[in-house]
Simulated assay, not measured.
Amino acid sequence: MRGITVKNKVKIVRIEKGGLTQSEFAKKVGVTRQTMNLIEAQKYNPTIQLCLQISKYLDTSLDELFWIEN
């Protein structure tokens, strides 16, 4: 799947829905702050399980948080 980029707006929604710090949010979903930093910087594509955990915690649909860009 060359040329496909996964984008997300995890940081925006995290701040809008309660303003948790990156560290606090990472702890809630079970990852390190460094991993959350990479996800929010769009330098790491999380597993589908982690995507679902993030969307569940933020009470947001998966497709609202993550999408594919060509």
Rank of each mutant, 00 (worst) to 15 (best):
V6I: 07
T35M: 04
G30C: 06
L62K: 12
V29Q: 01
I39G: 00
L65Q: 03
T35P: 04
T5C: 11
K17C: 05
C51S: 09
I48H: 13
K17F: 05
D59A: 11
V10A: 04
L62I: 15
L50K: 04
K9R: 14
I4E: 11
P46G: 01
A41T: 07
T32A: 00
Q42F: 11
G19P: 05
L62M: 13
L52V: 13
K7C: 10
I4L: 12
V29E: 03
E64I: 11
K27S: 09
L20V: 05
S55T: 08
Q49N: 15
I12R: 12
Q34M: 09
K7Q: 10
L50S: 04
T47I: 07
L62P: 11
I68W: 15
L58Q: 02
Q53S: 12
G19Y: 07
A41H: 13
R14V: 01
V13P: 00
I54K: 00
W67P: 09
N45C: 11
T32N: 00
Q34L: 08
T32K: 02
S23T: 05
V10D: 01
L52C: 14
E24I: 03
T47H: 07
G19H: 07
S55L: 09
K56I: 11
M1G: 10
I4G: 11
G18W: 02
L52Q: 15
Q49R: 14
I15T: 05
A41P: 11
K11F: 13
S55D: 05
T35V: 06
E64T: 14
K43H: 08
D63M: 10
G3W: 05
D59L: 10
L38S: 12
I4W: 12
I54E: 03
Q22S: 03
S23D: 09
T5Y: 09
E24R: 07
N45L: 07
K17L: 07
G30V: 05
S23L: 08
S23K: 10
K28W: 10
K9P: 07
I68Y: 15
S55V: 07
T60P: 06
